[in-house]
Each structure stands twice: as C-alpha cells, then as structure tokens.
Amino acid sequence: MIQLILKRLLTYIPVLLIVTIVTFLMIHAAPGGPFDAERVASPEIIEKLNEAYNLDKPLHIQIFNYLYSAIQGDFGPSFKYPGRSVSELIMSGLPTTIELAVYSILFAIFLGVLSGLIASLNPGKFLDVFPMSISLLGICIPSIILGPILVLIFGIWYEFLPVYGWGDNPGDKILPTITLGTAYAAIFARLTRGGMLEILGQDFIRTARAKGLSEIRIIFIHALRGGIIPVISFLGPAIAGLLAGSFVVETIFQINGIGRFYVQAAFNRDYTMILGTSILFTFMTLTFVLISDILASFLNPTLRDSGGLE
C-alpha cells in the first residue's frame, strides 16, 4: 500500500510540470497583457514594467526562471497587487476556502447519503421518488441561483441568517455551506441509492437476512460499507470541484477565500497568480483523489492491492 501511495505521489511531478508549462504557454498566447489599461501607458512605461517583472526575456528563459523559483516555493510577485507575493495572497484565502469546502462536503455527505439510503430502502415508492426528484432539482439549480434565493428568503424576508461574511456573525456559515453543498448532496444521494440497491441485491445480504441479523445491522454494518463506495470514490473530485467552484459562493456571500483570485487573475492577466492558483488546484485535486482512493480501498478489499491506487 505504501509503495503504491509513493508511486502515485511520484506521478505528481510530471502532472504538475505539464500543467505549469501548458498554463504558462496558454496565458502568454492569450490576447491582452497584464499592463493593458483603459488609460494607456506610454511604450516606455510598458517597457519598464515588463523589465520589472522579467517579461522582457525570451519565453523559454521566463518559464525556466519560473519553474526554478516555484520549486523553491517562490511563486513570484503578483502583477495586479504590487508588493505582494502570490504565495502570500493564496495563503490569505486558502484556509477560508478549505473550511468552506469541508463544511459543504460534510453537509453534502450527510444529506446525500441519508436521502440515498432512504430511497434505496423504498425502491419505487414515494420515499424513493420524492428525494430523487429533489436531488435532480439540486443538481440542476446552480449555486448562482440557489445562493441569492436562500439569501432572499432567510436573510432579507425573515432576517433569520446573515447574508455575508464568514465567521464574523453567528450563523453566517450556514447559507454558503448549503449553497455550495446542495449540488453535491444531490449527486451523493443518487450515488448512494445506486450503490445501495446493487449491494442490497447481493448474496451476502441475503445470507445475512437468512441468518436472522437485524435489518439495522444489515444496512449499516454490511450494506452501507459497500454501498457508499461510489460516494467515497467521488469524494476526491467532489472536494476539488468544491474548491474550484467556490468562486461563485464566495462572491455571493462576500467570503474572502481564494476562489475569487482564481477567476480574477485570469481576467487581470495576472500571470504569476494564474500559475500559482492553477498549480495549487492541480495539487489539491491530485491529493484529494488519492485520499478518496485510499479510503475506497480500505472499504473494498478487492481494490486494496491493485485497482484503487493504480
């Protein structure tokens, strides 16, 4: 197992290298530069700015210099925020974004697994059709619509919950968590239902019932362990998706995470910031996928020695 994990960790190197180089080439190929502004600067000023940020050097030298610094943990200065480094800007928002993602995933797991479980135990009945229809709605409604609706109802009409901030007012984490987690709760519900239905039809469940085990024991000890594997496998991409997709929720609720940097950097042509956030998100995606694979292989012995981690 440890060997397999190490092998997976080694694949990080080429993946990160390729992502960095491709991102670097793409942002330099995109029209418009970091110093284009409505108030046009003179060519002399642009020249000085290019010099200050090493953009006057040939592209291959620039990328080599960047990689050399990045390996040492220096992701360079932000072009948009003079005097601030990319690492510093990322660190200013990363804890909040991770916290938001963790709460959202917990919310999604709880709600999704519970609804999926109920649905799988009542196939074809109201308790199956209703939660599954709601989950379809959850998948379909984007957070950009759900967020403002929740704000309108709970924040403005009933004045029950705060509509902005993170950790500044009591309850201000509830609406962002629900907004970000709902779509994933819906996906988890459908995955749990599918996984459980498959497991509940298998021989060992029938054997367990024949042996006279209680239904609760069968469901929670034997069936859920296997039925939840699709959810666990999806956890890695889900968390990565949550982190990358936090931009919308951070904007709606005025949360100071890094999602906003991720998107704004592209619009601002803040080259170093685009590279820094892309590398970070790639790293986090690889890591969360690895973690979910490890978890899945613990739950499913058939994955333990090969498939799950290769």
Partner: peptide, 21 residues
C-alpha cells in the same frame, strides 16, 4: 445530526448582535 451540524456551524461563528451592523 442536522441540528447538531447547524449548531456547530453557528458556534464556529462570532458573537450575537441584535441591531443591524
């Protein structure tokens, strides 16, 4: 669990205020 979860989220936040900010 849901109630506990929301109480947990509330507890992670700051202090209560009655008036608007």
């Amino acid at each position: 669990f849901l109630v506990v979860f929301f109480v947990f989220l509330i507890s992670c936040s700051g202090s209560a205020d009655q008036k608007s900010k």
